[in-house]
Design a protein around this nucleic acid. Sequence first.
DNA 1: CGAGACATGTAAGGGGTTACATGATTTA
DNA 2: TAAATCATGTAACCCCTTACATGTCTCG
Lengths: 169, 169
Amino acid sequence: MIRLTQTSYIVLGLVQLAGTATPYDLKRFVSVSVGYFWAIPHSQLYAEPSRLAAAGYLKEKQEAGGRRRKVYSITAKGRKALEEWTARPAEERTELRDPALLKLFFGADPRELAREQVANLEAQLEEYAQIRATAPEGLPPGPMLALDAGVTHARAGLAFWRRLLEGRS
Amino acid sequence: MIRLTQTSYIVLGLVQLAGTATPYDLKRFVSVSVGYFWAIPHSQLYAEPSRLAAAGYLKEKQEAGGRRRKVYSITAKGRKALEEWTARPAEERTELRDPALLKLFFGADPRELAREQVANLEAQLEEYAQIRATAPEGLPPGPMLALDAGVTHARAGLAFWRRLLEGRS
DNA sequence: CGAGACATGTAAGGGGTTACATGATTTA
DNA sequence: TAAATCATGTAACCCCTTACATGTCTCG
């Protein structure tokens, strides 16, 4: 029995969406999907599927020739775990965990910070627009809804930091 | 040379604000300050100051009698590290890391989720109001600004999930 | 005075981050 | 064809989480 982390569910979910995937596939997939609000270093995308396969949540199959890459697909057990997870209420409280906010809290110059953050968030909104524009047909609604949430939050962040820029000082 | 993590800076910052603090002081302090957007398990507040003291960023002094608790205060080295950190631009990109968003992404029932999240966020706004109401005089502006950011984001989240609740389905 | 809640602390294990390393492809 | 970039993978270390554990109040 291993413990299933959020990373585990991301991997399970992506493998299910993809049908079958190598770690590198996952990496590319993440970068244009959950990656926009939940980053995962690529090394995790090698370690985690392997762990999940050892515990029976994924099936692992190694290519015969060439790079002999490992190809993963979801098992019944994996599908079940994923379903139970989505059905269960979200236990953990959401945290902001924004490094910029930490610095603000501990006395960094607000206008300095605000300038950076405004630039970052504007770039991020651009990216979101790109992602929406290039989304493939036939996608389930979840990813798009999550993207909407990302946009909402980015806009809220922009409003906050812009207010700070305007404030006198 | 140890690596300074975000947790390190939180501890340094809080010790500096407090002047002198035991791990338990830090725990209480966190729960009414940074804790509202960046949670830290209390065990970290024992381990991390000890680590920082070993590396010279904090001074550690053990009480003579009684519980023989360890009392920490910041050193010149610690103060310098903290200042450099606040002055440095925030390198890491902000992430949402919201478990509810993950579930949404992977197909959880939006209305189900939305109901929970609306309740959570409303409670959170209540807490923010409490914190603001009971804030001590003479606090530096950083913490209050960070609190404002928390409020902004919570409101944005509320708006998002409420929209989901209203959506037909 | 007994029991529950709060205060205070430590240990172990694993997940994640950072760094390294080596093929394959493009581009100049 | 050299160099730079991308693709693909592995390894080690350490922070962080999840327990466990034992005082010390407080209130009925």
